[in-house]
Structure formats: C-alpha cells, structure tokens
Design a binder for these strands. Sequence first.
DNA 1: TCTGGGGTCCTAGGACCC
DNA 2: TCTGGGGTCCTAGGACCC
Length: 421
Amino acid sequence: MYALIDCNNFYASCERLFRPDLINKPVVVLSNNDGCAIARSNEAKALGIKMGDPYFQIKSLCKRNGVHIFSSNYTLYGDISHRVMSIIEESWNEDALEIYSIDEAFLDLKTLPEEQINTFCTNLRAKILKDVGIPTSVGIGKTKTLAKLANHIAKKCLKIPVFDITGHEYWLKHIEVNDIWGVGRQLSKRLNRQGVKTAYDLAQLNTHIVRKQYNVLLMRSVMELNGCDCIGLDDYAPKQSIMSAKSFGSMQTELWALEQALSSYVARVCEKMRQQNSKASCIQVFVLSNRFRQDLPQYSNAVNYKLVHPTDDVRALTSIAKRCLKKIFREGIHYKKVGFGVLEMVDKAHQQLDLLHTVNEDLLQKSNKIMSMIDGINKRFGKRSVHLLAEGFNRHWKLRAELQSPAYTTEWLELPMVYAR
DNA sequence: TCTGGGGTCCTAGGACCC
DNA sequence: TCTGGGGTCCTAGGACCC
C-alpha cells in the first residue's frame, strides 16, 4: 500500500502561515515575473481563477473580489517544504519514502498492518498541521497511481483529509481520464476520441494494445489502475540536468544585458551542481524572443558545448557560456529569455581520467578552494554576497516581483515581529 | 504593457556499423 | 527500371509532471 501526502494549495498556504488574517480569504500566488497564477486558495478557485491564468487577465477580477496577491517567494516555500518533509521523515522509514516534489511525498506502507494505515496517516497529517501549520490531504491505494487518485478524490470530491480507495474502486467511473497521473492533454484527447472517457474505461483496456497504440507509460498507468504495482518508489538520485532560465522583466536587445543575466544563471546552476557533488561535462546556452509578440521578429536558438575537462568552476563556465551566447546572439531581436543549463554531469568523486589531456592538479585544488569559499560566504551572509563581476550590479533586466512577502523563516531581518500589549 | 520555471522519460529517425 | 538486412547509438522533440 502507498500513501501520497500532498500539501493543500501549498504556496498559498505558506503565505497564510504568517498572515492569519488571510485565513478564509482568497489568496493567489503568481509565477516568476508576476506572470501567471500558480497557486490559489480554495476561495480564489471558487472565484473561477484557473491555474496558469495570466495575471493581467484576472487583475480586475482580483481587485473586485479583494483577492490577496503574492509574488512567488521560493525561499519561503522551500524552507516550509523542508519542515513538512522533516516531520514525515521522523515518522516513517526513510527507505520507504519518496519526496516527489516540493509539496508531495509518497510512503510505501507495506510494512504496516492494513488496519493501522488509516490511523497512521490521520495522525501524521495532524502532526504536520500542528507543528508546521500546513494542511495536507492523504490518498491511500495499492499503487502510486491509485494513491494519487485517492488523493484527488479526497481533495476535490469528498473534501476529507484522508481517503483509502481500496474497496471503493467504483470511484474510477466518476473520474475523468485526464485526472489520472500521467495522462495529460494530448493523451486524453486521443483517448477521448476512442471513447475512453473515465479512469474506469482506461482500466478496462488491454495492456498489450495500449503498449502498441500508445506507449509503455500509459500501459503502466493501466496496470497501476488495476492494482498492479509497477512504478514503485524512486530512490534519491542526483539530478541529471540542472537548468536556470528566467524571463526578463522587460525585453532586452543588448548583448551585455543578456550576458549579465546569463552569468547569474551560470552561478545559480554551479551552486546547485556543487551541492550534489557533480561537475558539468556538457552545457547548453539558449535564447528566446517573445512568442506573444508576433509583430516582432521571432528568434530562438541554442548551442551545446561539450567540455574536455568536466568542471564546477563558475569562472570557467561563465566564460564558456558567454562565448556560446555570442555565437547565437543576433542584433535587432527583442529577447524575452536567456538560459543556461548543464545537460550532462559526472560525479566529482568518480571522474573519468583523460588519456590525452592531463589535469593541472594545482589549478584544480585552487579552484576547489575558491568555489568552497564562495559557497561558504554566500551560505553564511546570504545569496550573492560574493559573485562574479560579470553578473553586473544594477541588473535592470531582472524579473518583477512586486508583491513578495518577507523571508519570514530564513532572514534574521525579516523575522515576523510579535508585539506584546 | 502584461503570458513561469525546472525537471524526467520515451520515441522516432538518422548515422553508422558489418 | 531494378540497389539488403539487422543491429547500436545518439539526438531532437514531444509529452508529462509539479
């Protein structure tokens, strides 16, 4: 048996933690650049605000209805997520636990007697609510897909905190096929055309035919809906790729502005890469114009670069990235986005030696020392306390975040204040 | 005016080999 | 006129997830 613990309207719930005045009020959290709605409290959902709605389209609706709007504050959400996950880790064996996303975790409960499962989940949920203040929903089922589905039913249909779908499979007939984990827009369109409308319809399909006509992923979904566990928990694995790319606050046309932004993304990626003890062996730089402005010339391009010597040194990667950018930069384009990513990495400890090129050990050690100093300083004194000059200082290209809440839990200066009367 | 970011996995098709 | 067959590996692109 699996349980899926999912935080309710996670980002919106985080914003409410330190703003109890917002309980029972509509709350919306916007994506980067204050672009789209990416989290809504139940009250905001009830107003008809959809996931991904562009802010400028719902702005007046929000104003009329007194919706509280926040720019996204990932520092806060990351920290709260960590607290929620710590409680789950304390309560359940780490080998039977998968932190699936910032607000979800799967538990493999097969070692727990079936009659205790419901109580265990109910108690765990209560503990998270009491200790962190984040409401969660728990779905229970024989497979991960069924646990996901049970979670959906708990949240959207029954509006109860914990639901075990085992023995209640008739629910499948009431669930649209696109609400199944792994069935997205394209697949559900195709399935619908073939008369497969509900989760039940999908579960009835012949797995071999599904494998042939669709793909192995959908076949697995069919099997999982029938209670056959074929996905299982994912082990923790270091990331295979790390990207950083953000839309500009306003469109940019100058190379130097793109270079500054790119440099800051390189720094971000390098930091993450060093955290997981990896080194880059293939990188990518890409640029995009604004696809919503068809009146302007459209352009997008990307360049990949393989490194002879894998590295995690921000200085080396910044200079390579800038060279790559120069190759694909075109004059006269209004750029909306530039991005940097590491596509292939090697483990720092098990690095392949190169037959033809020798590594200068002195330089390598020096580089390691400098990188760990940078990481140390930034960890202690805050992000970007030290950075390359290439990132620039005024950063006028940076994204909008005009409605951001304080870093309540991660910055001494932004701690919530409590006044005694 | 304004439209997110960061991932994973699979598949088809091309290049190459014998 | 007519031009094999079977395999591997790599890559780009698509679909999906939160």
